[in-house]
Design a binder for these strands. Structure first.
Lengths: 145, 145
DNA sequence: AATTAAGTCTACTACTTCTATAGTCTTTTT
DNA sequence: AAAAAGACTATAGAAGTAGTAGACTTAATT
């Protein structure tokens, strides 16, 4: 499961993406609008800012805005900042590789191979879906279930 | 990330799959062979048994064996027993659907749509990979990274 | 019948991670 | 100088995960 942190992060980026062109958005407003606890959102925005995705301005009239085009911010990158690895097992992770504790022999591990497939399938979606795509998909009438 | 519980469950099923034909395997042996804490494994095997995947026999000469063909036990089913939902957000789950707390309008939610895609991509692998497949992939020389 | 070798079941504990909150500091504008 | 914002650190509470303990049941062997 996605952490709330990640979901909040995506929501915030989407909201800031829609706000592009306008003056920066304050944390408090963002928190209210997206129903996110204010101080928690504060931390999340900081992380995203330190990772280069957001621009922030202090003082009166300050706030947050995107530091990149919505089309250049991919969900996979966000997830990695807030939740860490995308793979379901450490030994199948591209960016956060770690050996599994109880693994005899990684090279021949059938579980690992399968979860590398899962990782690739997941990344195929997440690494190609940007904030702009998420915005575009809102209320486009596309029903899926 | 997969819980250890799930990983242990898969390992156990794989081991029992390889043991098919032979007398049932005792928890203690399984635990030693797969490096899984004995009492923890005990619980996991119970779950899998109660879900119909394992057959168990008490008393001397007893132990565990598969109750289905290895080719009929899919990873998606195992994951759902041990970890619950496969989707990354509750509102995108097929078997464990739940509304998201902070969601304004699910129908038009771009995040949800994206994570339904992720779920489908993940399921395409996990619902089609059986214990037999995992066994077959062991030491088949297929390198992937 | 007694003993031993297994699995069954429930409860509990320790640990970690996640979520959230609080408070102080810094920067910028007016 | 005052006010409006973000930056940063610490901490607390809740929830979930991993693992342990122990008493109970069933079946085979002697």
């Amino acid at each position: 499961m996605l952490s709330k942190k990640t979901k909040y992060a995506i929501k915030a980026l989407v909201a800031l993406g829609k706000n592009a062109g306008n003056p920066p958005m304050q944390i408090v407003r963002l928190a209210e609008q997206e129903m996110i606890p204010r101080k928690f959102l504060e931390q999340i925005l900081l992380d995203m800012r330190n990772a280069g995705y957001l621009y922030s301005k202090k003082g009166a009239g300050g706030g947050y805005s995107l530091n990149k085009e919505p089309g250049d911010i991919y969900l996979a990158d966000i997830l990695r900042i807030t939740d860490g690895p995308i793979a379901m097992v450490p030994c199948a992770s591209l960016k956060f590789y770690r050996k599994c504790d109880e693994c005899h022999d990684e090279i021949t591990c059938g579980i690992r191979k399968t979860f590398i497939d899962v990782r690739d399938a997941t990344l195929k979606v997440l690494a190609q879906t940007s904030i702009a795509d998420v915005i575009a998909r809102e209320s486009d009438g596309n029903f899926m279930e």
